[in-house]
């Protein structure tokens, strides 16, 4: 009896490709939060970390001393003058009393830039801030 080799054409199975792709889409859709603040800063590190409040207002200070403010609802806007900054913060405190302010400040920023925001927040009776940090993993001194 003679056996003839069956001629199967070589194919890459792609039937499950769409399933895999859709699973990846679901992951990215779940992980995506359309951030209100798009500034890139090098955050300081800390061992102590607490979750920021939901819908907190954001004040971002970049290494170039650009200041961006978001009320926690709308996308952040670059402040072009001291008066605009003061008015924006006063407006947020008036509209959303008790709302937390997230301070997203570059680690190398001179302290006086942070102090400027800090003073305006106190003047406007803001109650609580969260200094945004990245998780530090090194052992702390005991």
């Amino acid at each position: 009896m003679r056996y003839r080799a069956q001629r199967l054409s070589p194919v890459i199975p792609t039937a499950s490709m769409a399933d895999i792709a859709f699973l990846l889409i679901i992951f990215f859709m779940y992980a995506t939060t359309f951030s209100l603040d798009g500034t890139t800063v090098d955050l300081p590190e800390s061992l102590i970390q607490q979750d920021v409040q939901k819908d907190a207002a954001i004040v971002a200070i970049t290494a170039e001393n650009e200041i961006w403010v978001s009320d926690g609802v709308e996308k952040s806007v670059r402040m072009t003058s001291e008066q605009e900054l003061r008015d924006s913060i006063a407006d947020i405190v008036t509209r959303f009393p008790g709302r937390q302010f997230i301070i997203k400040c570059d680690t190398q920023t001179p302290y006086e830039n942070f102090n400027r925001i800090y003073e305006i927040l106190i003047e406007n009776n803001a109650t609580n801030v969260s200094l945004l940090t990245e998780q530090k993993y090194q052992e702390a001194p005991r």
Binding site: L121, N128, T133
Partner: peptide, 9 residues
């Protein structure tokens, strides 16, 4: 990043 150090003003 959604975590930081809380500080009461």
């Amino acid at each position: 990043a959604t975590r930081g150090i809380e500080y009461g003003l």
